[in-house]
């Protein structure tokens, strides 16, 4: 009684290509175009290749716009780039880690004192922004884009690495004005979240395949080192994740 529809996987890109939805030029207020994302370069292959292992966790819980997510990804990759040592932030899934964290209590500062009044503090009194982290990230990421548009007349994700660094540097040096938070405070959060995403347990969506740990020769969560602690030489171990404890 049921028809099996074969090859029914329609990714967004394929859909648009096949449906003629856009071809007719009827794009509602120029809106659908933006759904395709700013950067589909090279992603064609990944979706047509047979799925090796479905990484369902690699989808978005917090971000709503592809463009924001791509900007975030590009910025984290500059902070922690791919090199001879191994993968950078993108390949480690750091942007997914940050997305999931911003959707959670980290993003909402659930365990932090967020009552007013808010005043600017001295350099020794800690962050005093009334903004929650997810608000800081959203504002900061949009500002990265705005800044690269104004400095280089192009979107952040399309810039050369060095140009991206220049933009990021402006944030780190507080040469950009944000609302309710300093650009350097956003940058610090971005940097620390990038490192956390590179090196936290893969449970949280980053440190993919424990590749961050492998690069650092860190064995993750081991039960014991009682037999190795007195070893004179460096001991290389295959890392182990929290998942192994269940």
């Amino acid at each position: 009684m049921a028809n099996e529809e074969k090859d029914s996987k329609i990714s967004r890109r394929k859909f648009v290509k096949n449906s003629g939805y856009v071809a007719g030029g009827v794009v509602g207020g120029g809106l659908l175009g933006s759904l395709l994302g700013v950067n589909f370069k090279g992603s064609e292959q990944t979706s047509t290749a047979p799925v090796k292992e479905a990484k369902f966790n690699q989808a978005l819980m917090y971000f709503t716009r592809q463009a924001d997510f791509k900007t975030l990804g590009a910025a984290t990759e500059r902070i922690f780039p791919e090199d001879d040592n191994g993968p950078g932030a993108l390949a480690l899934g750091v942007p997914y880690f940050i997305d999931h964290q911003l959707a959670g209590s980290y993003g909402r500062n659930d365990q932090e004192y967020m009552q007013g009044p808010f005043h600017d503090g001295t350099a020794f009194q800690g962050l005093q922004s009334p903004l929650k982290r997810h608000e800081i990230f959203m504002q900061g990421i949009r500002a990265l884009e705005k800044e690269s548009q104004s400095d280089f007349n192009d979107s952040f994700t399309s810039l050369e690495g060095e140009q991206q660094d220049k933009i990021l540097q402006k944030f780190e040096d507080d040469k950009v004005k944000l609302k309710g938070v300093k650009a350097s405070e956003f940058f610090d959060l971005l940097r620390s979240a990038t490192l956390a995403g590179a090196y936290s347990d893969p449970l949280y969506g980053g440190n993919e395949d424990m590749a961050g740990w492998k690069m650092k020769e860190y064995p993750g969560s081991q039960m014991s080192y009682i037999n190795e602690i007195e070893e004179e030489d460096f001991v290389e171990m295959k890392p182990s994740a929290l998942h192994e404890h269940l």
Binding site: Y106, N109, D110, Q111, E112, Y113, M114, A196, Y199, S200, D201, L203, Y204, G220, S221, Q222, L242, H245
Partner: peptide
């Protein structure tokens, strides 16, 4: 699940709730 640096060391899983 204690061997979780992010949850316990970075996000202070066992410490005072400052909210």
């Amino acid at each position: 699940m204690i061997h979780d640096e992010y949850r316990y060391a970075v996000r202070y899983g066992l410490m005072q709730d400052t909210s």
